[in-house]
Design a binder for these strands. Structure first.
Lengths: 190, 190
DNA sequence: GCACGTCACTCGTAATGACGGGGTCCGGGG
DNA sequence: CCCCGGACCCCGTCATTACGAGTGACGTGC
């Protein structure tokens, strides 16, 4: 998630040109700071304040409700466990679920998750193929995939990693396994 | 694609002067926001809502470049045939393809097609299930589904219709079949 | 370290918008 | 008939925004 923006990025959010943003900045209408080289940067927080002050609609890209996690799974157990864990850890998060390929694709596009949990043993869907499909889209190069394979099946786990998964989480798992795996994909907990 | 408009641009779409738009905005009839400099901006979405609420005809500039068609298929033949047909008929259109459930879901969300062709004999995906999944989402209530079943299999065709397809197109088909089927889902050709 | 994309800055100029005041047209009610 | 209000349009002035060209510098990824 971006923490600061250049003038031309802000321009889009404000529905004006970059030139105008520059003038606003010079007039002190919007809070900016400059890089040592003189380029303007606007912090997300300042941009949000500015947009709110001027009642300019806020694009969903700018909102931040926490880590967005998509769970591709058929059972509910993983989801409830994950929810409980994150709630306890006081990490802001949003969890969505998908149970088949269609749903997974749809939610990927609509929800734009930061992390995707994929059960490799789904009845209808090939989990490995799913990893590949996600990773082959450039838009999701930053998306972290956590593959869930049955404990003990190392071969399966390896294949998941080579299919694009960042980490592997054997099932069943303990809260500590979860903590470690999330840390591995950049979600620090506790 | 423009995401917001000025009063004078909106004025053209509403067939009045910019001044009138200004008054409408002041009276709260149309949703606007202002730049810090006081210039009004109307979001495309708000404009469309406004036009619909007042049954003002929507200019094609505001919609996109024509009929949006998604083809869920494994072979290329249907797509090329469809393309050629629409080009010849001089209908503005955009065709996208998907070859599996994930892709289909992803394209549905990103592309928001008006019409979806679904091959019922896909190797990996259950076409009927796909129809159901699309139709169960309220966002796609206006989306027209054309199921493609092997010619002669009436039972299959019937099941497709009850799964949410608007029309059935037996394979193989003639240009005239295509014309009729498209007309049935509201795309008039020739 | 190099190259490419982006940004800053300064001009100037053109376009467009806001605003207030004043019209015009039309239909309804006294 | 006449007055009134609503809806729309027109005008002049001033402010805001856009755009273009030219130059040089910055930042980022490889």
């Amino acid at each position: 998630m971006k923490e600061s923006f250049s003038t031309s990025e802000v321009a889009v959010y404000c529905h004006v040109t970059a030139d105008t943003i520059r003038k606003w900045a010079e007039a002190g209408r919007i809070r900016v700071f400059k890089t040592p080289g003189g380029h303007r940067r606007i912090r997300r927080e300042d941009l949000l304040t500015f947009l709110r002050d001027n009642s300019i609609p806020i694009h969903s890209d700018l909102k931040d409700e926490g880590v967005k996690i998509l769970v591709v799974e058929s059972e509910r157990s993983v989801v409830t466990g994950l929810r409980r864990f994150l709630e306890q850890a006081r990490v802001p998060f949003v969890v969505e679920t998908a149970s088949d390929g269609f749903d997974a694709g749809h939610k990927m596009a609509m929800f734009q998750p930061d992390v995707v949990f994929i059960d490799l043993q789904l009845p209808e869907v090939d989990g490995l193929e799913l990893c590949r499909r996600i990773k082959e889209k450039a838009d999701y190069s930053a998306t972290q995939i956590i593959a869930m394979s049955p404990a003990g099946d190392n071969d399966f786990a390896m294949r998941a990693l080579s299919a694009g998964a960042t980490a592997n989480l054997p099932k069943p798992f303990t809260p500590d396994d979860l903590r470690r795996t999330l840390a591995h994909v950049g979600v620090e907990v506790g």
